[in-house]
Design a protein around this nucleic acid. Structure first.
Length: 505
RNA sequence: AGGCCCGUAGCCUAGAUUGGAUUAAGGCGUCAGCUUGCGGAGCUGGAGAUCGGGAGUUCAAGUCUCUCCGGGCCUGCCA
């Protein structure tokens, strides 16, 4: 994440995929660290600092706006407009950029600001159901010794070389193997490192090609489970390097760069006992209608690509709040006797479920064209439908006088003999297989679709096979048992998808 | 120009590992129904697809190969 603006729905997709994958991996017994890479240096950070220090923007938002949103919408977007007319600010940006590359007062100041933005972003992430184990700062990579180590290694392997002539003279480069493509600059002629350089260090660190280069500390005293990288000496002896597998989740636009990184890493990983994998997913764009409601000029385009710098994006918190308003009304209508807190809490959970399912139900290689109207739907293949189904199943179990008894199911063929019952049972029995396949294929979508399908089958069962009104006690017991098992299955699946379940909605 | 990705009813999307019982599935929309029945955020049924075009491999192709067409992305001393 770039700690300079609020999370937009593109980040939300990344977050949902990553979080669901982490849940899937943990559920299947894998030991993993969920890391969030923080780009706390470079231009986008410099822009915020220039805004606050030299362009007269307040350090605090005037109203109770979240700090990440304030920094992004009120400063980052505006300062990029100001550069057009106020050239002295462009010079200031150059100055700030240089200061960020060394130990300086400005760097210290920037750290405070970016941490503040980061904390606001992590609040949003938590609201969406995602938590991280580790934050790694780009700035720590720049100042770490890891860079020198990997730099020497690459020099020895002839992966990089110092360009002596031509346009790239004075820069360290990686020769490209692609046609019509300039070589990749890894160290600029002024000695600073580029984005890919930092990514190589990070990747090498992940799978132990270089030794541990960071120390770790608790990032936020409110949450001592979340660690962050630091170059200061600390008491924490945890090491995060040397993983047998690293999965880097970045969108498809970075595929080429990731491929180069992987190729470089393979040169140092002769035994191939370590794997570095780029898990690619397509971007989220805005539908014409949604872009227009945000006041973005669409011209004759059908799909609008988001752009943080131009302010052309849709903020996660705001999106969730819009969904929540709709869900709130609907929930209130159906639960008129409940108190305000209950309704709000319920609406929040349903909204998150709705948002998560909406962004998880497509496969990773499909571009999502986000449409606000579509996301407000509560019926059909949606998160609310899943929760509704869960509530129905729960309701039956709560109203039942007796709990289902497995020992009473003597003749399952007689007691659960209807076509839709058998279909439901058959599909429920696939749960282990589906989870296993989803993990192997890194496919949260498969879990999402499976869950929906199961709910679909259950609702069909619900309609055709009355449970509590069934007169045959054996059949009733068998059906009750089926409902119970179904709800258990759903709990597992909801946990994987990051959907909280509710007894009533 | 080169590289990567996508193309399945009006729209959106599944169809994995391993080509095979699928009469190509689901959602939105549309048309017709279902409530003195465990929650109608639901269910049932209808209409709507020669799976972008073509060729090939095969007993068998939405799925594999080639080719063409359409769309997107990448190809920065930005990140």
């Amino acid at each position: 994440m770039n700690p300079n603006k609020a999370l937009h729905i593109g980040h939300a997709r990344n977050l949902f995929i990553g979080d669901t994958l982490a849940r899937m991996l943990r559920f299947t017994g894998h030991d993993l660290t969920v890391m969030n890479y923080i780009d706390d240096s470079g231009l986008q950070v410099a822009d915020i600092i220039v805004g606050m220090k030299y362009a007269g923007f307040n350090e605090k938002p005037e109203n109770d706006m979240k700090f990440d949103e304030y920094a992004g919408d009120k400063i980052y977007v505006k300062i990029n407009e100001l550069y057009e007319t106020r050239k002295e600010l462009v010079e200031k940006r150059e100055y700030v950029l240089k200061q960020l590359e060394k130990k300086s007062e400005i760097r210290q100041y920037a750290k405070e600001i970016t941490n503040k933005i980061l904390k606001a972003q992590l609040e949003t992430a938590k609201r969406l159901g995602a938590e991280y184990d580790l934050l790694v700062f780009e700035s720590d990579i720049i100042f770490s010794d890891g860079w020198k180590e990997i730099f020497e290694k690459m020099k020895d392997e002839n992966i990089i070389k110092l360009e002596k002539e031509g346009k790239l003279s004075g820069a360290w480069i990686i020769k490209t193997t692609f046609k019509n493509e300039t070589d990749k600059v890894i160290i600029r002629s002024d000695g600073t490192s580029t984005y890919i350089a930092k990514d190589i260090v990070l990747a090498a660190w992940k799978i132990g090609i270089i030794d541990e280069i960071f120390n770790y500390e608790v990032f936020d005293s409110q949450n001592n489970k979340l660690l962050s990288s630091t170059l200061n000496k600390t008491d924490n002896k945890t090491k995060f390097t040397n993983n047998s597998k690293a999965i880097t989740l970045i969108d498809a636009r970075q595929s080429r760069l990731q491929k180069i990184i992987k190729e470089i890493l393979n040169r140092f990983n002769e035994n191939e006992d370590r794997t570095y994998e780029h898990l690619s997913y397509e971007i989220v764009s805005l539908s014409k209608g949604t872009a227009e409601t945000l006041g973005i000029k669409t011209e004759d385009k059908k799909i609008i690509q988001m752009s943080g710098r131009k302010g052309m994006y849709i903020n996660v918190d705001n999106t969730l709040n819009i969904i929540k308003n709709k869900v709130y009304e609907e929930t209130k209508l159906r639960n008129s006797k409940e108190n305000e807190d209950w309704i709000r809490n319920t609406a929040e959970i349903i909204s998150v479920a709705s948002f998560r399912y909406e962004l998880l139900k497509n496969d990773l290689d499909k571009i999502i064209i986000f449409d606000l109207e579509d996301s407000l739907r509560l019926d059909g293949e949606t998160g609310p439908y899943l929760l509704y189904t869960f509530a129905r199943a729960t309701s039956i179990l709560e109203k039942a006088k007796d709990q289902p008894k497995i020992e009473f199911i003597e003749d399952i063929h007689r007691n659960l003999s209807l076509k839709h019952e058998i279909e439901l049972i058959k599909n429920m029995s696939k749960i282990d297989l589906i989870i296993e396949e989803s993990v192997i294929n890194m496919s949260p979508m498969r879990i999402a679709k499976f869950t929906y399908n199961l709910c679909n089958l259950f609702n069909s069962f619900y309609e055709k096979s009355p449970v509590l009104r069934e007169e045959d006690k054996d059949i009733m017991n068998a059906r009750l048992h089926l409902v119970n098992s179904f709800r258990d299955s759903l709990e597992i699946l909801f946990n994987l998808l990051g959907i909280e379940y509710l007894k009533r909605i």
